[in-house]
């Protein structure tokens, strides 16, 4: 009976020692995760999970370049055995369509064709801006403004206009 207990105790002891040795030689996943995470600070949106030295990256980044850079940064971190890159690249946000402004030459032609029907009003065109000067009734000015806006200018400056 005593022999068996002794035997059992020594087995437990040996196993315990083996476990200690194994633990000592093995880097902690938490440490790896901290190292990888700090290497990823330049790339926001990426998280790293570590299991037995194997890193799994996830999250969403703006570009394919960021995804590659995150993987490279993770691989370069200490004690990383492997990197699984599950990062997704966000679909490019549709750029806000720029408002097409008519070029000055075409704008001048268009403005001249319109303004000639409005005696008492003159118009200048510069850098896409139509500057209106003179006097007009409210109704006539509305008609003119509708015509000018249809020419797609950058803006219509009516600060020099007096509406009667």
């Amino acid at each position: 009976m005593t022999m068996r207990i002794k035997q059992l105790a020594s087995i437990v002891l040996v196993m315990g020692l083996m476990l200690m040795v194994a633990c000592k030689g093995k880097p902690k996943d938490a440490d790896i995760q901290a190292a990888v995470t700090s290497s990823l600070t330049a790339i926001p949106g990426v998280t790293a999970d570590v299991k037995d030295g194997a890193v799994t990256l996830s999250g969403q980044v703006a570009s394919e370049a960021d995804k590659t850079a995150a993987e490279a940064a993770a691989k370069a971190s200490k004690d990383v055995k492997s990197v699984t890159n599950n990062i997704t690249v966000a679909a490019p946000v549709a750029a806000t369509p720029q408002v097409a402004i008519t070029a000055d030459d075409a704008l001048k032609t268009g403005v001249a064709a319109v303004v000639k029907d409005f005696p008492g009003i003159t118009a200048d065109v510069k850098d896409g801006i139509i500057s209106i000067k003179g006097e007009s009734t409210a109704a006539k000015w509305k008609t003119l403004k509708m015509a000018l806006d249809a020419l797609k200018p950058k803006r219509v400056d009516a600060s020099g206009l007096k509406v009667k």
């Binding site: 000015w141 509305k142 249809a150 797609k152 200018p153 219509v156 009516a158 600060s159 509406v163």
Partner: peptide, 19 residues
């Protein structure tokens, strides 16, 4: 155009181009 003219009487501010 009527609504535009109501918000900006006589379209004088010049902050809208409506086509």
């Amino acid at each position: 155009w009527d609504i535009y003219g109501k918000i900006d009487p006589n379209f004088l501010t010049g902050d809208v181009v409506m086509n």
